[in-house]
Design a protein around this nucleic acid. Structure first.
Lengths: 215, 215
DNA sequence: GTCTATATAAAGATAGAC
DNA sequence: GTCTATCTTTATATAGAC
């Protein structure tokens, strides 16, 4: 995510101030996302975000008023980036099985490209009890709708659509949250390498499709 | 977990010091588990742990030398409580399908009774990169062994046993980590109520068994 | 074994110069 | 728009009385 959004940014790591507000603001957001995704809101340090950005703490308050203001913007940005892609897919018009497969593939791709996203959401839920989070992307609603269509059509087994939606999302993102507690299972691999991400995606997809299929 | 372990403890919330070291030590541990499970190591406050226990901060340093020392003991205790039960079950002697079902049932029961456990493990992985965690319970080894027996016997579909072990554990515990981000899906329910825990357990079990079954 | 008081360090936030 | 310097609060940790 940081990678994509930093595309147009020019300031080098230790370069002096360049006085382009859009660039600075965007760089602070990227740095903050990294910091918040690792430590959560409370344990994150404005000093660390500033240092990562290459500016001083004062800039955070100039652009975002407070540490909390910055956190809100970061979280909002995280929750909404998957939206446009998902809307374009017109999942309602596909048969349930295909819709589910496309949904899961897209979710896995998106989290693979933005491993900060699951982490920041876990931390938000656990530490802040979801205080700052709104499901603006309506991820669950979309998934639940697909599941219910599938049950009605008889292509999915009778299941609780809400619990199953949670279990499906969990299967996609647990890997990223638990990364550093499970990496010892693959002593010679990088957990975020292309190879491992593809394996996880394939296995997660197989597991999910088998988990909901009728019979 | 706190509930079980507090059974023999006598000190009331605001009672004065009772000068029983075993009781005090145990109470600090219970309070620390709650605090660490909510905030993680860095963002937890010794003052809060002390207040929750009904003693002063100084006691933490008297019994555990440092905040980090306390965290280590809490984590170790969390990781090992499921061990005895799991060993008693002699899963190696059951057919793979039954072994898996028993394993998952026990894991779901254990996390339902100790919802702090998944939280503290998520926070440890994300914030500390697993620095303080060792898989002393060998949870994954046991699960992987069951899966490989099942593949060999033809009762499970061909699957990657390590990735699938991760996906199974994820299905069991994601619910607890994401609790406060998904509670809006059940506006009228308490996520940790008996009713909801039973629903989650049932749906997770069905999802997992269907997810690995041959054909 | 427990408490009070305090030393020391770290972090959020702001004022004012450039 | 950015920085330096500083205020204030909050935390970890310890010394010493009881």
């Amino acid at each position: 995510m940081a990678g994509i959004r930093s595309a147009k940014l020019k300031r080098l790591n230790n370069a002096p101030q360049c006085r382009d507000p859009e660039i600075t603001r965007s760089q602070i957001l990227d740095a903050a996302e990294e910091e918040f995704a690792r430590h959560g809101f409370k344990a994150s340090r404005t000093e660390a975000i500033a240092a990562r950005t290459g500016v001083t703490k004062a800039m955070i308050y100039y652009y975002f008023q407070s540490k909390e203001g910055l956190y809100r913007v970061v979280l909002e940005r995280c929750a909404t980036t998957i939206l446009p892609t998902l809307e374009q897919m017109n999942l309602e018009q596909l048969p349930p099985q295909q819709a589910l497969e496309q949904f899961v593939r897209q979710l896995l791709l998106h989290t693979s490209n933005n491993p900060n996203l699951p982490r920041i959401m876990f931390l938000e839920a656990i530490q802040n009890k979801g205080k700052y989070y709104r499901d603006t992307a309506n991820l669950f609603s979309k998934l639940i709708a697909i599941l219910e269509r599938g049950i009605a059509a008889g292509s999915f087994r009778p299941l609780d659509s809400r619990h199953t939606a949670v279990n499906i999302l969990g299967t996609c993102v647990f890997y990223f949250g638990a990364l550093d507690n499970i990496k010892h299972l693959w002593p010679s691999k990088q957990m975020l390498s292309q190879e491992m991400l593809e394996q996880h995606s394939q296995e997660a997809l197989n597991f999910i499709l088998a988990g909901v299929r009728a019979q």
